[in-house]
């Protein structure tokens, strides 16, 4: 895992806030973009585009969708179960009753959090711009 500089982290947070028409201080690290901040699928594309422009990187939007604990549609059932358990401890405010037991691809967008966006950017930035966490 790599970590962003405080300045880069702030840039990401400002972009997330702008993309979703929220105030910067409304963004709790583990807030769900979809369930808590009202993001729609087009916003995820918009967010990836803005981050690409700001950081000069390429971000496959699927990167963002699976960014929640590295989970994705191709995750094994065991990895999925373990990852979802981790998410549950990290996102106690998230309404897990609303999350399906057998998630579809589109459901993963609901697990994208503010922190997972920060982590995605840290993953795609060159190593000399990030530090080990």
């Amino acid at each position: 895992m790599r970590e962003l500089s405080p300045q880069d982290r702030e840039t990401v947070l400002v972009i997330v806030a702008d993309t979703l028409s929220k105030e910067r201080d409304q963004l709790a690290p583990h807030a769900s973009l979809v369930d808590d901040l009202g993001a729609e699928s087009i916003d995820i594309l918009d967010l990836a585009f803005r981050l690409e422009a700001a950081f000069g990187v390429t971000i496959d939007e699927r990167e963002i969708w699976v960014a929640a604990e590295g989970l994705g549609p191709s995750s094994s059932p065991e990895a999925l179960a373990a990852g979802l358990e981790r998410m549950k401890t990290r996102m106690p405010g998230f309404d897990w009753e609303r999350f399906p037991k057998n998630p579809k691809r589109s459901d993963f967008a609901r697990l994208v959090t503010v922190q997972s966006i920060v982590d995605t950017v840290a993953r795609v930035l060159p190593e000399d711009r990030t530090s080990p966490s």
Binding site: T19, L20, S21, G38, D46
Partner: peptide
């Protein structure tokens, strides 16, 4: 009603 709609 939804400020986010302004960007589209």
């Amino acid at each position: 009603r939804t400020p986010k709609a302004l960007k589209t």
